[in-house]
Each structure stands twice: as C-alpha cells, then as structure tokens.
Computed example of a mutant assay.
Amino acid sequence: MTIVPQETDLNILIVEDNRDDVDLLMYRLRKSFKSVSYTHVSTLEQYLEAVRHLANGKLDRTSYNIIISDWAVPGYDGFVALQALQDVDETIPFIVVSGTIGEPTAVALIKAGAYDFVLKDQSAHLPYIITKALEWADQRRIEQEQRRQIEMQTKALSCSPIAMAILDNEGTFEWINPAYEVLTGWTLAELKGHPLWE
C-alpha cells in the first residue's frame, strides 16, 4: 500500500524535553500530512506509562502510528524505551530525532529495532521518513497476520485425526501430521525428502 502524506492521519507519541522542538516538529508535519495529533511526554516514566496503556488495552493499539523520540532527554534511555515498545507492539515505528546522537549509537539503535534516526538540523526530511515508516509498518502488520494464519492452520492440521501429508511437486514428503505417523508408523524425519512411491 502506498502512503500519501496529504491523505494520512498521524497520531504521534513524542518524547522530547524541549517544548520549542515539539512546536517546530508539529509545524513541519502539519504542512505535510492531512492531520496530525500527538501526545507529548518528557520523561522515561511518562513514556513507559503511555506504553503500559497500550499493553493494558486502555488505548487502541493503532492510536499511535509513530513514535518520535529525542535521544538527549535527561534521565531517559532510548534503548529502554525501544524495548518497552517492542514488548507491546513491534509494528509501531520508533524514530529518533536528535541533535546529539552519535553515529555508533544511531547504528546500535537501528540494529535494536528503531526504524531510523534524523538529526534535528535535517528534520525537513522527517515527513518522507515517516511516510516510508508507515509503509514499513503496514507491511509488518500484513506479515504478522500471515504468520498468525500459518500458525493456526498448522495447529489445525496437527490436531486433525485424519492422516495428512504435504508433498512437493515431485511427490517428495515435506510434512506429515501426527495422525499420519500413528497410521503408518513412519516419522517425518524418516519420510522427509523421500518420494511417496518408495
């Protein structure tokens, strides 16, 4: 799905201790997106409380579709904040906007799961980065749903009392369910890679 900024509603959780930076950020984003609403927190405790509300279902999980965090907030740890978010929802992009973050720290954050980082003096690029982050989030949600469907189908097939086997295009065993093992006495380890006619 292609995200069009002028048609996109943003609801952002912002972690920032400088109110002027929040106002500047909102000014930039409101020029690019259809509508922008936000919640502003300035401490790690306030941030964790907002994330706990997501975990407890007090807020709709889609209520924040992006998190923008400064790095240099007193008493705040971006790695702790990122992990707290991932424990609740891995599809909400976490973007660091900072004037003080060094490249090694930025790379470590991205490796830990942050979507991206932007230097404050380059924040004009933020609307483009947010657009790409929202597309990434949509794709992650689709992939998660596909994984859930596969897991449910696998459980259903595994629990079925009917013997079932999955073969590849050449008739070679790929998978069998427990009922197949009971009926034939063969295990998947014994059959996998062997053709049915053997």
Results as ranks from 00 to 15, higher is better:
Phe94Trp: 03
Tyr38Ala: 13
Ala81Gly: 15
Leu59Tyr: 15
Gln122Tyr: 09
Gln149Asn: 07
Thr43Cys: 10
Ser32Ile: 05
Ser35Leu: 05
Gln139Trp: 01
Glu49Ser: 15
Asp121His: 12
Lys34Pro: 03
Ala108Val: 02
Ile130Ala: 06
Gly102Trp: 00
Ala50Leu: 06
Ile95Pro: 05
Ala114Pro: 03
Glu49Leu: 15
Lys132Pro: 02
Leu44Arg: 08
Phe79Ser: 08
Leu54Arg: 10
Gly99Tyr: 04
Tyr64Cys: 10
Lys111Asp: 13
Gln46Cys: 07
Thr131Glu: 11
Gly78Ile: 10
Tyr76Cys: 10
Tyr128Lys: 12
Ile110Thr: 11
Pro127Glu: 09
Phe79Arg: 07
Ala114Glu: 09
Glu135Tyr: 03
Phe33Leu: 10
Ile95Arg: 07
Pro127Asp: 05
Thr100Tyr: 07
Arg52Cys: 04
Tyr64Ala: 09
Ala84Gly: 04
Phe117Cys: 06
Val97Gln: 08
Leu59Ala: 13
Val96Glu: 07
Ser98Asn: 03
Gly102Ala: 10
Ala108Tyr: 00
Pro74Arg: 12
Ser42Thr: 12
Phe117Pro: 04
Asp89Phe: 08
Leu134Pro: 05
Ala108Glu: 13
Glu143Gln: 14
Gln139Ile: 10
Leu134Glu: 04
Gln146Cys: 00
Val97Trp: 01
Arg61Ser: 14
Met152Thr: 09
Lys132Gln: 14
Gly99Ser: 03
Gly113Phe: 05
Thr131His: 00
Gly78Pro: 02
Ile162Arg: 01
Thr105Tyr: 03
Ser160Ala: 13
Gly99Asp: 01
Asp89Met: 07
Ile162Trp: 00
Tyr38Gln: 13
Val88Glu: 07
Ala81Cys: 11
Ala106Phe: 07
Glu143Pro: 00
Ile92Ala: 05
Gln153Tyr: 13
Ile150Asp: 01
Ile150Asn: 02
Ile66His: 00
Tyr76Phe: 15
Ala133Tyr: 03
Thr39His: 14
Tyr64Glu: 07
Ser42Phe: 06
Ala72Gln: 13
Glu103Ala: 11
Ser63Phe: 11
His53Gln: 15
Glu145Asp: 14
Ile130Glu: 04
Lys155Ser: 14
Val80Phe: 01
Ala112Glu: 12
Arg147Leu: 14
Lys132His: 12
Gln122His: 15
Ala137Lys: 08
Arg141Pro: 05
Leu54Glu: 09
Pro93Met: 09
Ala124Trp: 03
Ile67Thr: 04
Gln139Cys: 00
Tyr38Ile: 04
Ala55Phe: 03
Gln144Tyr: 07
Val41Gln: 08
Ile142Cys: 00
Tyr128His: 13
Ala112Ile: 01
Gln86Leu: 15
Ala112Cys: 00
Ile101Ala: 08
Pro93Thr: 04
Ala137Thr: 05
Trp136Lys: 06
Leu109Val: 06
Phe79Lys: 09
Ala55Ile: 01
Thr62Arg: 12
Thr131Asn: 02
Gln146Ile: 12
Thr154Met: 10
Gln46Thr: 11
Lys58Trp: 11
Asn56Tyr: 02
Val36Met: 09
Ala84Gln: 08
Gln149Ala: 11
Phe94Val: 09
Leu126Glu: 06
Ile68Asn: 03
Asp70Gly: 13
Arg141Glu: 10
Arg141Cys: 07
Leu126Trp: 04
Leu44Gly: 11
Ala156Ile: 15
Leu119Ala: 09
His53Lys: 15
Val51Glu: 06
Arg148Met: 13
Thr91Ser: 15
Val80Lys: 14
Phe33Glu: 01
Met152Glu: 14
Ala124Gly: 02
Leu54Gln: 11
Gly99Ile: 06
